[in-house]
């Protein structure tokens, strides 16, 4: 239990997927302009990573290993992720239009979010048990949501600050991200 907890803390704060591993930089810069869209994207990412990780975990250990075709890993995983995203989009289109209104626009973008594929592959390469896999694939996107939310708050503030022309938009956002990564490196000795 303590192991699982420290694993979760490590995944959220210490080895944060955006700030120390640089996965998911694209939505980090793209969808962080407003806090509402940051939370929407983060929630959608948590859901997709959880779902896709569970499916790929069972497919890998159940089908690929049994048939001896582990080299199909990459194709299988990307197809599972893409199908899962399509299925989720279809499902919420039909049954929850309100949810679709807030999340619909982010779902197609998640297919090309490298964080999803990375977590699915990581669960296999680290040889996680089922419980560890669940904890890992929940806490990694939680760290993603946390950093995305903090960063969007910073950018809302940056929008109204007076910045020199050459720094407007992306440059100052990238500097802010760098300072944030510096701050997060302070968590390094926590676990």
């Amino acid at each position: 239990m303590a192991d699982l907890f420290s694993m979760a803390i490590a995944a959220i704060l210490i080895n944060n997927i955006i700030l120390t591993k640089f996965f998911g930089m694209c939505p980090f810069l793209g969808v962080s302009k407003k806090t509402s869209s940051a939370i929407g994207m983060g929630a959608a990412v948590i859901f997709v990573i959880m779902g896709a990780s569970i499916i790929t975990y069972f497919l890998y250990h159940g089908v690929l290993v049994t048939l001896g075709i582990e080299y199909m890993q990459l194709i299988t995983f990307i197809l599972v992720i893409a199908s899962f995203v399509q299925f989720t989009e279809m499902f919420i289109k039909k049954f929850s239009p309100a949810l679709y209104k807030s999340l619909g626009i982010y779902l197609p973008l998640i297919t090309t979010n490298c964080a999803v594929l990375y977590v699915a592959k990581d669960n296999i390469t680290q040889n996680y048990s089922f419980i560890e896999m669940l904890v890992n694939s929940f806490s990694v996107p939680l760290g993603f949501l946390l950093v995305l939310y903090i960063f969007s708050c910073m950018r809302e503030r940056l929008d109204i600050a007076s910045t020199p022309n050459a720094w407007k938009g992306n440059p100052v956002a990238l500097v802010a991200a760098a300072l944030m990564a510096l701050a997060f490196s302070g968590f390094a000795g926590l676990v």
């Binding site: 793209g30 302009k33 407003k34 940051a38 209104k101 938009g169 992306n170």
Partner: peptide, 17 residues
């Protein structure tokens, strides 16, 4: 009410999206 989600999207300044 969701037909124009793309046009109404203002979350983004970065052309990657």
């Amino acid at each position: 009410g969701c037909e124009n989600l793309k046009e109404e999207c203002e979350g983004c300044t970065i052309s990657n999206c």
